[in-house]
């Protein structure tokens, strides 16, 4: 008879693991940068807050939900941008969105000057902040513009951990990334489940059915269908290591947004008249790749 230990390796790993999901945006930015190199820009005491929320009787946050910090990753100059999912659902308003766009712009300018600056974006976002609606749309377009320009110089890595997930305008930002890192808890989707159900009905999408929702946009599904490059358990150090590994790998052989031939081939070969499941897609794409 064999002896089964009460604490399996997995349980031991769990008990010593530090959660990334439970970290707030500032702690995430600190986690991603080499120890002792963190320098925050437009931090809480600069008090650059949303000018639009107080006009609507909504409490502001001193960093508008976006932490930008410079430092080093694996010894190389880097900027980290972390969205705070707990403040207004990680929504993109004028100030937080502009902080993101500026961080990318200044990183691009550094790269153009020969200072190789890498960038990581840690996302938790429900999309555009409806209280700043069109300002959000404009700023998000500026974020994309700078992401597309910056990723020519350096890999641009997006981390999506949860619990909020990454939706709306920021899901497209994830689409623009050189690499995407996700946890199993994370979700990545253009339209939120509730919005799809509202627009298209329960036959199309059941927002309250969590296993169903994750089967569509959860980290495991996104990794299996190559919308994410790395799938992780919720482990802060694992996130840091994965980011370092991706930077060591350098630029991807092909950016995802350049894979139009592949996706057009896939679209042509599918039958869109029937409803699809996550499993259907995994099988179809596996078969198509052979």
């Amino acid at each position: 008879m064999t002896f089964t230990p009460i604490l399996s390796d997995e349980v031991v790993a769990l008990s010593t693991r530090r959660s990334y999901i439970e970290l707030n945006a500032r702690a995430r930015a600190q986690q991603l940068l080499d120890q002792g190199t963190y320098r925050e820009l437009l931090g809480p005491f600069d008090r650059v807050e949303s000018p639009w929320l107080p006009m609507q009787g909504i409490v502001t946050q001193s960093d508008d939900g976006c932490v930008v910090a410079k430092g080093k990753i694996d010894g190389q100059p880097a900027v980290v941008i972390a969205m705070e999912g707990k403040f207004q659902g990680g929504s993109i308003g004028e100030v937080c969105g502009m902080k993101m766009a500026e961080a990318f712009r200044l990183a691009r300018l550094d790269n153009e000057k020969g200072i190789p600056t890498r960038a990581v974006l840690s996302l938790e976002s429900g999309g555009v902040r409806l209280q700043e609606a069109n300002m959000g749309e404009l700023v998000i377009a500026e974020i994309y513009s700078e992401m597309v320009a910056l990723r020519k110089h350096t890999p641009l890595i997006v981390v999506i951990a949860g619990p909020t997930g990454c939706f709306g305008g920021m899901s497209l930002a994830a689409g623009l990334a050189s690499y995407v890192v996700m946890t199993r808890q994370a979700r990545l989707s253009m339209n939120g489940p509730e919005v799809i159900e509202l627009e298209a009905g329960k036959d199309e999408f059941v927002a309250s059915d969590k296993p169903f929702v994750w089967s569509v946009n959860g980290g495991a599904q996104r990794f299996a269908t190559d919308f994410a490059d790395v799938l992780l358990e919720d482990d802060a150090n694992a996130v840091t290591e994965a980011v370092k590994d991706l930077f060591r790998k350098g630029q991807p052989a092909q950016l995802r947004t350049d894979k139009y031939d592949l996706f057009i081939k896939r679209l042509k070969s599918m039958d869109p008249s029937k409803q699809w499941t996550g499993e259907d897609i995994r099988n179809a794409w596996k078969a198509g790749a052979k």
């Binding site: 930002a173 298209a200 999408f205 897609i281």
Partner: peptide, 22 residues
């Protein structure tokens, strides 16, 4: 807004045309 769209990664299709315009 649809399930097939999300499964097939509409976020990436939209990002791709944005990148092309940019």
């Amino acid at each position: 807004y649809g399930r097939r769209e999300e499964l097939f990664g509409i976020h990436l299709a939209a990002a791709a045309i944005i990148a092309a315009y940019a």
